[in-house]
Write a protein that binds this DNA or RNA. Structure first.
Length: 938
RNA sequence: GCUUGUGUGGCGGAAUUGGUAGACGCGCACGACUCAAAAUCGUGUGGCCUUUGGUCAUGAGGGUUCGAUUCCCUCCACAAGCACCA
């Protein structure tokens, strides 16, 4: 047993006293490495197992980089504005500062207990006025440049919390904190213009090393879509409205328009007779929370306004509806509806009996010159009683098909289908279930030796009864009539019939690509050509244009809370908004007698004196009493760590230029679109302004996975009984054990269940290491070469794995090395020291102690990282597998200099190999050097 | 529904320019040490069989290949995120 309590305390004290991990940021002589953790909110609960995982990972990397000669910046700080401190203030009437400072002290103590190598001189805390001074300073620039502004807009209002919430603070229509209901409400809001950065943020994603899932989430969040604006005149009014569409190529198929219930024209255009119904529908929509609105979207609802829009391409008058499936907050809040080619419009049109006009046909088969044109049908007949489909089996003359046929002159498609069914199968009692989209099919008919180009209309019929009119049936047909199940329909390979079946199975809108019909100047074009042509047409006729639209909305930048950064804006009595001068910053958060906001108002409304403000030229006004959201301070803290005490700038530009970007950023995936997006926006703004040296602040991002309870259940609020407290583990097993165990659990990004016996195993390994390397008899000065190969392999593997954050496999390799040391019974000093250096990154306390026992007086933290020599990694003799027809039959030892012929001979001499090739002919022998020898026999 | 991942022994997990599947650890069994136990050290440990060998096996089913956990297609399950985005 190693005395971990004494050792851990001893080295924590040593590091503190010797300022071992102090970073001289002005030392540019060494290459820099900036490794960053997402700083925690200093809750009273302290660290949890998930914190430890991420922090240990960055700690290991920072320790290795330091030993590799980098000047490492590995800071820690606190995102200290937030709700728990505010609730404490409301309840006790005390300023939240004391609460916050107490928690910070507790957190810092815990972090030190775990032996992390932070430079505490660089600590920042977002609620500290010397910090939020610069949050306000950057905000001021955003405001002055027009990126922060007041906008009247619908917001997520939480009555219970008395505040406005951002979209990512609302989960399923409820507040993220507390789970209270959230409703939409129109309010004047201080916003940051995120869409202005959308394109730059999208581009930036391509140049950073982030998890693909996170990048994809950000792309989805930005939600770019390329389309067009199309303007519709309103019949009888000198008014027009604009819709956004990604499918302007289908404009000829637009059979109605829909306005969002909140659209500004709704009241204007609604005809007298529809007024009442429209008002009622609007009222229903307004009362719905976002949750109800999405819950109730199973079936489409809406009402007709009585007004008509004029389709600009063909002057057709189409009805205007309102419906909540059109969102006021996206695009223009109005759409053109093309039921034939949009699922939602299809659903709506079906329900309200609106015409469906197909303007795009799927193309099947291959076009050919000199085709004969025909119109035809394919009829799918389904018997709901037996759940079978009617097919004609043409056997070797064309396989299994549905009923098909050519339309006679002047015959409509439906009559043709019914006639064909009757003629070929005799069934007469059918109900038309659906007319399916037309298909454009090219084929070659062998029996006629002709190429055909047909337009086929598909039908889905349900069989009413099995009465057959056999009069018209011919006896000598070449097919047999067969009722088959769904599985058998897979036999249908004919592209036309196959496609028809797919439409029959899922009747609805045709959303794919194809060839345009019923579209005048677009006829014959595919989707993309038609879109381009239509945009040109719209622009020439001044009724539309190309348009890029984003889901990304304004970021509401004010909360009716106390414990946040005050906004440095004053609302003057003359209506003007005045932003404070730089010299007036920081605007300090005043102490209050009552920290509670009343009637949904911000708590700072209680600061009656503080609120009042008079400009130098005597204009009076009141300060903004909302504070900034939690994500404000965390949007730029990576700058401040570099230069935390600077009183004249948020960060010295020369230092920023040297230290940014962050080389490795570690934190939970829950921040994928919140903090990580906001931080990128602030940095991008600063970059454009010449205040940040980099387009992207975080070069490489890694998310640590979640640590689950022993039974695989999420730890945390819902199941506190499964929670593992790192404090307890560190106390009972040591910080080093906790660190080692968490790193050995599995890949850093995976979610992994906790295992108590796994912790035991980690402790056992540390003790095994301790017993071996602290025993002077084991450490020898002459190298007998027994460990040479394994040592160099270990150095390579551990170095590579640490670099790639593959700590579980690095530890595994070190275990193999230790096992080998035990087997040999001794270890050369050089290897022992190299090994201790490597493992000290994970178990720094034991690492330092062993280093000292080996006779060193200085900390191990700045020792030179062990090197490996490629020449020891090359294996002179290697065991390779001999396969016969891909199955391993023997293993043979081969030398590096063996020729292929020698190896093959050796392989063929193996008894077991001989047995398997006996009496067979060797076709070929595949020999991959150093890997495998496969003998193929017949 | 859509997007992105994941799926390997009793358990956590190794192994991908395609080349001996199951490294390392946990658990379990046995042995050494001990009066004994713990600790420690060592050996073994995917299933099945006729066991110096054979055979099956990486969510299921197909395909490509001399050879597939790895590449391709279809499907299933789980996780996270998005969800009427026109």
């Amino acid at each position: 047993m190693y005395p971990f309590r004494e050792i851990e305390k001893k080295w924590q004290k040593y590091w503190k006293e010797h300022q071992t991990f102090k970073t001289d940021v002005w030392d540019f002589s060494k290459p820099k490495y900036y490794v960053l953790d997402m700083f925690p909110y200093p809750s009273g609960v302290g660290l949890h197992a998930g914190h430890v995982e991420g922090y240990t990972a960055t700690d290991i990397v920072s320790r290795m980089k330091r030993m590799q000669g980098y000047n490492v910046l590995h800071p820690m700080g606190y995102d200290s504005f937030g709700l728990p401190a505010e609730q404490y203030a409301v309840q006790t009437g005390n300023h939240p500062n004391g609460f916050t400072e107490k928690n910070i002290a507790y957190f810092s103590e815990q972090l030190n207990t775990l032996g992390f190598d932070y430079d505490w001189d660089k600590m920042v805390s977002t609620s500290d006025p010397t910090y939020y001074h610069w949050t306000q300073w950057i905000f001021k620039r955003l405001y002055e440049d027009g990126y922060a502004k007041y906008i009247d807009m619908p917001v997520n209002w939480c009555e219970k919390l008395g505040t406005v919430l951002s979209n990512d603070e609302v989960i399923d229509g409820k507040s993220e904190r507390g789970g209270y209901p959230v409703v939409r409400k129109n309010m004047k809001q201080l916003c940051i213009d995120q869409p202005a950065f959308a394109e730059k943020l999208l581009e930036g994603l391509d140049e950073i090393d982030w998890p693909e899932s996170t990048k994809e989430m950000q792309r989805n969040w930005i939600g770019k879509s390329i389309g067009a604006h199309v303007t519709f005149q309103i019949k009888g009014y000198d008014k027009e409205f604009t819709v956004f569409t990604t499918r302007c190529d289908t404009l000829f198929g637009a059979t109605y328009c829909v306005l969002a219930p909140e659209h500004e024209y709704v009241n204007l255009i609604t005809s007298e007779e529809h007024k009442e119904e429209v008002k009622k529908y609007q009222a229903i929509c307004a009362s719905k929370s976002d949750l109800e609105r999405t819950e109730l979207n199973k079936e489409k609802t809406g009402v007709f306004t009585g007004a008509y829009a004029i389709n600009p391409v063909n002057q057709q008058e189409i009805p205007i509806y309102i419906s909540d499936y059109v969102l006021a907050s996206y695009g223009t809040g109005a759409i053109m509806a093309v039921p034939a080619h949009d699922e939602r419009d299809y659903e709506f049109a079906k329900k309200f009996n609106i015409p469906i006009i197909q303007v795009l046909e799927e193309v099947t088969g291959t076009p050919h010159e000199n085709e004969f044109e025909k119109q035809s049908i394919v009829a799918v007949v389904y018997n709901p009683k037996t759940k079978k489909y009617l097919t004609l089996n043409w056997h070797d003359k064309g396989g299994r098909l549905f009923i098909g046929g050519t339309r006679k002159e002047k015959e409509d498609a439906l009559s043709c289908a019914l006639r064909e069914i009757k003629e070929e199968t005799g069934y007469v009692h059918l109900t038309l279930e659906a007319e399916l989209p037309k298909i454009n099919h090219h084929y070659y008919a062998y029996n006629k030796d002709k190429y055909f180009h047909i337009e086929s209309t598909g039908f889905l019929f349900y069989l009413k009864d099995e009465i057959q009119d056999e009069k018209e049936l011919e006896d000598d047909e070449e097919f047999t009539i067969e009722w088959v199940d769904e599985k058998t329909l897979e036999e249908i390979k004919d592209p036309l019939h196959n496609k028809t079946y797919q439409y029959a199975k899922h009747p609805g809108a045709m959303v794919g690509d194809g060839v345009h019909i019923n579209s005048e100047f677009l006829n014959g074009m595919n989707k993309q050509e038609a879109i381009d042509t239509m945009i040109k047409w719209l622009e020439e006729h001044h009724c539309g244009s190309r348009k890029v639209n984003y889901k990304f909305r304004e970021w509401i930048f004010a909360r009716q809370r106390y414990w946040g950064e005050p906004v440095p804006i004053v609302h003057l009595e003359d209506g003007e908004d005045y932003v404070l001068e730089d010299e007036e910053l920081p605007l300090i958060l005043p102490e209050l007698e009552d920290y509670k906001g009343h009637n949904g108002k911000a708590p700072l409304e209680n600061a009656t004196e503080w609120k009042k403000y008079t400009t130098k030229d005597g204009r009076k006004g009141f300060r903004e009493t909302s504070t900034m959201p939690g994500s404000a301070g965390s949007s730029w803290y990576y700058f401040r760590y570099i230069d935390p005490k600077n009183e004249t700038m948020f960060c010295d530009p020369e230092l920023a230029k040297h230290w940014l970007p962050v080389d490795l950023y570690m934190g939970g995936p829950e921040h994928a679109v919140g903090h990580l997006m906001y931080a990128r926006i602030w940095n991008r703004y600063l970059y454009d302004k010449g205040l940040s040296p980099v387009k992207e602040p975080f070069k490489k991002l890694v998310h640590q996975g979640m640590i689950l309870g022993e039974n695989g259940i999420k730890m945390g609020k819902r199941y506190p009984e499964y929670a593992i407290d790192p404090k307890d583990i560190a106390r009972d097993y040591g910080a080093d054990t906790l660190r080692l165990y968490e790193m050995f659990m599995g890949p850093i990004e995976a979610s992994k269940p906790w295992s108590a016996s796994g912790v035991e195993g980690a402790k056992r390994f540390i003790e095994r290491v301790w017993r071996f390397f602290t025993n002077v008899d084991h450490i020898v000065d002459d190298n007998d070469g027994h460990l040479t190969k394994i040592y160099h392999q270990t150095v390579k593997k551990v170095t590579d794995d640490y670099e790639n954050l593959g700590f579980n496999t690095a530890i595994s390799q070190m275990m193999i090395f230790v096992n080998e040391c035990y087997r040999i019974g001794h270890c050369p000093r050089e290897y022992a020291e190299g090994f201790i250096k490597m493992i000290s990154c994970i178990i720094p306390h034991v690492g330092e102690e062993m280093w000292q026992i080996l006779g060193h007086n200085e900390t191990i933290a700045y020792q030179k990282w062990p090197q490996y020599d490629e020449k020891y990694l090359v294996e002179e003799e290697k065991e390779i597998a001999v396969q016969v027809n891909g199955k391993v039959r023997a293993t043979i030892k081969v030398h590096l200099e063996d020729t292929e012929r020698q190896i093959e001979e050796k392989a063929l001499q193996e008894e077991n190999v001989k047995r398997h090739i006996e009496g067979k002919q060797i076709v070929k022998i595949i020999l991959i050097k150093g890997r495998i020898c496969n003998i193929v026999v017949k």
